[in-house]
Design a protein around this nucleic acid. Structure first.
Lengths: 127, 127
DNA sequence: CGGGATCCAAGCAGATACTG
DNA sequence: CAGTATCTGCTTGGATCCCG
């Protein structure tokens, strides 16, 4: 989507496809972005190290997500032309400022995980 | 995945599939949740009103997302058995506390949209 | 080591038709 | 009005192979 529909959607009010929040959410909502930003919060890391930190991610998704983050200026990519190539990834300044809102979300998650789980169980039991 | 791998993943450190943040992100990252929560921040609304506020959403996705949010205890659903049925949706207490972290994310988006766009253009131009 | 390219399966989401 | 049900296309993402 966001192809032919995009044009017609652009008319609208808030909560629209062109809304900045929407743009960012499309990025951070992709399941891996937050994990990668989190993994890089401790400091820079190379490709294989990231792959180990973000357990469960495939090589394809790691590459793809990193490209997107690099494109958005959230992550920097540095190639060291050594014998076996070494590539370092790190948060940019913008990336570091993103940690705060993400942490807020994480704290909410931790604080409400119990409530959410309980609510889910209650919902599934009846109905 | 998360099937056979899940067991082996459970050993791990942070950034795992069972991590609370991950659970929440799977929910808010689904493209519509944040928009709906935002639309309900102004107060309760009925189905058709929500559909108008969150422009571009299909009836199916609105229903589906609302069910998920109701299950998570973030949104409440009240059926008024009147002549034409009237269904009111509103944020629960938990839902209201979620507005804050989401707003933080939104503010970051607005603050950095320019940087991100510029970075994207620069990235696309070269390379 | 750090990917790029390709193939393919599963799930997500839109359009449409029907219901209490 | 507020959905449910179904059919179907398209995207997402894993697996695999290959390259500098």
């Amino acid at each position: 989507m966001v192809t032919t529909q995009a044009a017609s959607v652009l008319r609208g009010s808030p909560y629209r496809a062109d809304c900045p929040t929407r743009r960012i959410l499309d990025r951070i909502g992709d399941r891996w972005t937050v994990l990668i930003v989190g993994a890089l919060s401790d400091g820079s890391a190379r490709f294989s190290e990231l792959r180990r930190r973000v357990e469960g991610i495939s090589q394809k998704m790691l590459t793809q997500t990193l490209r997107g983050l690099e494109r958005d200026g959230i992550v920097s990519r540095t190639v060291h032309p050594e014998v076996p190539v070494r590539v370092e990834y790190a948060l940019t300044e913008a990336g570091r400022t993103l940690r705060e809102p993400l942490r807020a979300l994480e704290e909410w998650s931790i604080a409400h995980l119990g409530d959410v789980s309980a609510s889910q169980k209650a919902y599934d039991r009846e109905d």
